Computed example of a mutant assay.
Amino acid sequence: MPVKRCVLRDIRTLAQFYDELARQFAFPPHFGRNLDALWDVLTGEVAGPIEIVWEESEQAQANLGVDYAKLIILFNDLAAERDDFTFTLR
């Protein structure tokens, strides 16, 4: 099965982060745009394998602050939960 790949770049706001993921992975219209909804959609509604590449991650960290840290924790938890999920920070 082909890898579903999402490349994030030039992320300046949390809204932009959710917009890009929803667009690139074709999230369902009911996606709630919060951490719980992101977990639910990435564990139950997006078939794998999934790869997220976050480019310019240091700039995103500066822009998003504590939200960035929460997203990285969620991605680490997803990698532990799903054998077919990977993410890379660049």
Rank of each mutant, 00 (worst) to 15 (best):
P2K: 13
R5D: 00
V7A: 08
L8F: 08
L8D: 03
D10A: 12
I11H: 02
R12M: 07
T13F: 09
L14N: 05
L14A: 13
A15K: 15
Q16W: 03
Q16T: 02
Y18R: 01
Y18P: 01
E20D: 09
L21A: 06
L21E: 04
A22S: 15
R23P: 05
R23I: 04
R23A: 14
Q24L: 07
Q24S: 06
Q24K: 08
F25M: 02
F25H: 00
A26W: 00
A26N: 12
P29Y: 03
P29L: 09
P29V: 00
R33P: 02
N34C: 15
D36H: 14
A37G: 14
A37M: 10
W39P: 06
W39L: 13
W39R: 15
V41E: 07
V41I: 15
L42N: 06
L42Y: 05
G44N: 12
V46Y: 02
A47Y: 07
A47E: 15
A47N: 11
G48L: 02
G48P: 07
P49K: 08
E51I: 00
W54S: 01
W54G: 01
E55G: 01
E56Y: 06
E56W: 02
S57R: 04
S57P: 05
E58Y: 06
E58R: 12
N63D: 11
L64G: 05
V66Y: 12
V66Q: 12
D67T: 08
Y68F: 15
Y68T: 03
Y68G: 07
A69I: 15
A69D: 13
K70W: 09
I73P: 03
L74H: 06
F75E: 01
D77L: 14
A79C: 11
E81W: 10
E81M: 10
E81N: 13
D84L: 04
D84A: 07
D84G: 08
F85V: 06
T86A: 11
F87I: 04
T88Q: 11
R90G: 10
